[in-house]
Amino acid sequence: MNILVCISNVPDTTTKVTFNANNTQFNTAGVQFIINPYDEIALARAIELTDGGKGAVTVIHVGEAANEPTIRKALAIGATDAVRVNAPAHDAYFVAVQIAEYVKQHPFDLILTGRESIDYNGSKVAAMLGELLDIPSVSIIKKLDVDGANGTVEREIEGGKEVLTIPLPFVAGTAEGVAEPKIPNMRGIMSARTKPLTVVEPVEVKASSEIISYETPAPRGQVKLIPADDVAKLVDLLHNEAKVI
């Protein structure tokens, strides 16, 4: 079984998000970039599913050469080989088209993404890939198993879950629960340097969305402290002042 894992390069979760150029650009100064945490879950599950010679795991990333440390990390964790589409990730549709083009030429049995990237949170690439390739897609899954030509997934719904069986190939967006992220060992780190990383040029895509500007959430006023011996006061404020209960 050959699995493709789509990985995104995102700011570390501890990043304090700020903007520059008149709030039109994300300020990357001092920001540590990592593999999107949900993509790490996808990668870990792909490695588990192909463990013991049962297949190969290719990671694909749409981004510039500066992001290669993130790709090498994925190789160190255990991916077999990697592909980088040499273009900035303009938006989810751009990314999905690039990956779909690659898959049309190099078919895979299973395509995994994270449920969403932690920078733009769109949850779009998995479903767009499914549509572009005319195969099923399932977003936000908590469990993934493959048995022969079929996969079984648990999909999160409000207040529960759905269990689906889906014939391969399909696209799945993974969330917590699918696998524990893997930490690369020394052997992995050493071998990652020599694993194949192919660079392909992008296809042209007509853009349909542009980010115009950013803003941070409006600061809240000073916290109103209520004495620990007057808890009833909190209930009163929530009812009469905040009007939320």
Partner: peptide
């Protein structure tokens, strides 16, 4: 933008050649 909506809206957007604003 529910759990199901997130799996649905991007597919609709691709079908319609539409730009999408999620979230």
């Amino acid at each position: 933008n529910t759990f199901s909506g997130r799996g649905l809206a991007p597919r609709v957007a691709v079908k319609l050649g539409a730009g999408i604003a999620d979230g």
